[in-house]
Nucleic acid binder design. Structure first.
Lengths: 293, 293
DNA sequence: TTTTCATATAAGCTCTCCTTATCACTGTTG
DNA sequence: CAACAGTGATAAGGAGAGCTTATATGAAAA
């Protein structure tokens, strides 16, 4: 390609208006500019493009052929610009979020709902996987945002906390619970805990390990919601996230056991690639999240 | 569209090379120019297009979407330019020629053959119609060149003679022909002439009319070749174009009758729209014709 | 004729876009 | 480990492409 692309836009408009003067008015430049530009283009392409007459200009045979191509080129560019504008206004686009079941259901759901209501044309996809895999998904570009239990660390990622949560021990309503438990005491209760590969379980284990206590749960399960249900039917004492068990606590299906000192609070956080700018949808979603932080 | 199209070519190349520096080298401009251009483009579109890193750049999500569009735009332009180049080299294109049967067969045929041999990729189409209609076809844009019997006149057309022809009276080989005929004498022979709507017939009639002679042919037919055949079997005296009857005259199927003074010569000519530039194929075809003029 | 509406051309200026030079950073290499 | 080679960003300044205005030219309409 030898010729300036900008000439083609002028060529395009001129052909459409079949007149140098009209095109000039429309493009807010002088007729002279058009005339010079077309002459230049004709010279560059070594081809006469327009037939000049008194009532304007008409494309030559060669001009018509060129016009077809230029037209589709210009339209492609216009499509591109329109697309970006729409993305910008969040009228289209997509967003892939990686998050575990529990976080999705207990924390993200209302945000997802609101986001969809606000930007109905953004396609949201959830990438559900194992807690530790989430960050990988982001690093591989398979998800743009991940919501995970903190702490988590990664050089390539920006990880920010967005929601503080508290792990508490709960039991069924009829459970004969003392007023206050020490860590040793609670460790001796019949425990129902999450499986070892979960980050919540790791967190609890680590904290107890600092006190040189090893937890030996009677039951290990995978889902947070089962912890609550098992506790409520007196299968034992569960360690659950207080914020995720609000409803059941209020209804009295389970009751919180006082632990002294309580487990330190931890956070849910979001992660994204440090060096990649966030897409508009991702930005918008995080804005929603941040309003509540 | 607000943005300079030229930026998009730089964007395109930069995206392809995934590097400002490499693209710069390839485009024979400075790396700085690319950097500025992309910054400008990003500002104009209000969208980050590239993720800068130490080992080059990568398109953002939005950049990728834009790239798809830009790519097809640039390819369209390239197609257009290639197309023109091919037309220019006469590697493609088409040409519609209007000409009557006789002129096509007796005059154009060798040129058509040679043209096709020289430019095998140009599609030639013949528009065959009534002698007077030819010029209309050109004016309507349905044919680009017309070959007609002169004289012919039209403000919109450029009409040039390209082949001189001579009308002669011929008779069968056994016909008892005197040495020399006056116009009155020939008019009294049993004439076989073309039909009245043909320009050849008009030409003969007009010339005789100048001498106040009206021709009353015994037979009127439409095709030039039949004139020869009818004369050769002694149905009468035909008026034919000498140049188109060369073979039969040489073979002695017919013989020329001396007319004194002879009918003035006339020409075949070509016609094209005065204000339209000729397409490359038409130009090339005429060049072939003109070599022999 | 004269007027009017096209495009073409001339001359000059403006401002875009490119250049050079330099910085800042990182990963590589002697 | 320091110097280098490669990345992109930034500053400043200059060249010239591409615009402007003004005028010429030509054909059709009045």
């Amino acid at each position: 390609m030898k010729t300036k692309l900008d000439y083609y836009r002028i060529f395009y408009e001129t052909a459409r208006f079949a007149s140098f003067s009209t095109a000039a008015r429309h493009l807010y430049i002088s007729q002279s500019a058009i005339s010079q530009c077309i002459s230049q283009l004709e010279e560059d392409l070594d081809t006469q493009l327009f037939i000049r007459s008194r009532r304007g200009v008409a494309l030559t045979k060669e001009g018509k052929l060129l016009f077809q191509k230029v037209e589709s080129a210009i339209q492609a560019i216009e499509q591109g610009e329109t697309l970006l504008a729409r993305l910008h206004k969040l009228e289209s686009g997509s967003l892939i979020i990686a998050a575990g079941d529990t976080i999705t259901r207990e924390y993200l759901l209302p945000y997802l709902e609101q986001f969809h209501k606000t930007y109905p044309n953004i396609r949201i996809e959830m990438a559900n996987s194992y807690s530790h895999h989430m960050l990988e998904l982001v690093k591989e570009g398979k998800a743009e945002l991940a919501f995970v239990n903190l702490p988590a660390e990664d050089d390539e990622l920006c990880i920010e906390p967005c929601h503080k949560i508290h792990d508490v021990f709960v039991c069924g309503p009829d459970y004969n619970a003392k007023k206050k438990y020490t860590w040793e005491e609670i460790a001796n209760e019949p425990l129902i805990l999450l499986e070892k590969n979960s980050s919540s379980r790791n967190y609890i284990d680590k904290n107890f390990a600092k006190e040189r206590i090893t937890l030996n749960p009677q039951i290990e399960i995978a889902a947070h919601e089962l912890l609550i249900q098992f506790a409520s039917i007196h299968l034992g004492v569960s360690c659950v996230v207080k914020e995720f068990s609000k409803k059941e606590l209020e209804k009295g299906l389970i009751k919180e056991m006082k632990l002294s000192p309580p487990l330190p609070s931890r956070s849910i956080g979001y992660a994204y690639l440090r060096h990649n700018p966030l897409s508009f949808p991702a930005q918008a979603f995080l804005d929603l999240i941040k309003r509540d932080v």
